[in-house]
């Protein structure tokens, strides 16, 4: 690749987390002009959300906040927040980059960040974009609303509601989650966050038969790992997935509470104890035959 004789003296750093900020500062201090592009409305990234840093246990904000200030004050750094890189062309030493700056709907020169507008805005925690649902999502939503009403639509019932919806559909359809978010007045992100945190919830439909291999300690020392591997091999899918014919979903569980009879495999809630490698394939065949 031919490098131009005089490379342009500016650098673009994409992503203004702690790594991006530090790179921008180092480059700027070495005399480069730096464009710091950040997708979200403010710089700082994940570190600003942390309490302490590993392994020294230093306070995260104490490390990052001076850098934030320095970054915005540095003459060599131009911060482009709420912006996305759209296109990159050219070659090393001389790139042309198109950046899409999203509308803030607020004049950044005048805004002091006092926070008053945020507090007075009457619409809180609402979805900003209402999606248009497909026809077949309507049943899901109706059923979900029925469940929500059953628990009085209280925030504290979130997990119970999710459990019931998950039980009803075998997973949590997107329409259901959106409807829960609206009715409980919770940000969708929080509903998703809760769903992802707990193992009992699934965001994808499961197959006709749900196979769960116990990976508890008692089952582990009796060879549960091998049973799982054999099942993965026999079904041709890794744990956590569903076979193409949608007949089987393979999953693991931490302990089924029948540890004396390990290793245990549960299929559709029925426990099969003292599993051996020899019986694994037979068990699957047995269920495959059931219609």
């Amino acid at each position: 690749m031919a490098v131009k004789a005089r490379p342009s003296g500016s650098v673009m750093v994409v992503g203004a987390g702690i790594a991006g900020i530090q790179s921008a500062l180092d480059l700027a201090n070495s005399g480069f002009k730096v464009y710091l592009v950040e997708h979200s409305p403010s710089i700082g990234g994940t570190m600003t959300q942390l309490d302490k840093t590993f392994p020294t246990n230093d306070c995260a904000m104490c490390i990052v906040s001076p850098k934030l200030v320095e970054c915005s004050r540095h003459h060599n750094i131009e911060v482009l927040t709420y912006s996305d890189v759209k296109e990159v062309s050219g070659e090393a030493g001389n790139f042309s980059i198109t950046v899409n700056k999203k509308a803030r709907s607020i004049d950044p020169d005048k805004c002091t960040g006092c926070g008053t507008c945020m507090m007075t805005c009457p619409v809180t925690n609402r979805l900003q974009i209402q999606e248009i649902f497909e026809e077949d999502a309507i049943e899901e939503i109706e059923e979900t609303e029925r469940i929500i009403n059953q628990y009085g639509g209280k925030r504290q019932s979130l997990i119970t509601i999710l459990q019931d919806v998950n039980e009803k559909f075998g997973y949590l359809p997107e329409g259901a989650l959106r409807s829960i978010s609206t009715h409980l007045e919770l940000p969708l992100a929080e509903v998703y966050g809760t769903v992802c945190f707990y193992k009992a919830f699934s965001l994808e439909p499961v197959g006709k038969h749900l196979i769960k291999v116990c990976m508890g300690t008692a089952c582990h020392v009796r060879g549960a790992g091998r049973i799982l591997e054999e099942l993965e091999r026999y079904l041709g899918i890794p744990s956590g997935q569903t076979t193409e014919d949608r007949l089987f979903t393979l999953d693991t569980v931490n302990c089924l509470g029948a540890c004396a009879l390990g290793p245990i495999v549960s299929v559709d809630g029925d426990f099969h104890g003292n599993m051996s490698l020899l019986r694994t394939a037979k068990l699957v065949d047995e269920y495959a035959k059931r219609k």
């Binding site: 979130l158 997990i159 707990y198 193992k199």
Partner: peptide, 26 residues
């Protein structure tokens, strides 16, 4: 009666209470 949702850390006292409140069990 509240049913757990499959998170080991929810056995910890403060996490359990957060979970009872319908929150993420941290």
């Amino acid at each position: 009666v509240a049913r757990g949702a499959g998170a080991f850390v929810c056995g910890e006292s403060t996490a359990l209470m957060a979970s009872l409140e319908g929150k993420v069990g941290r």
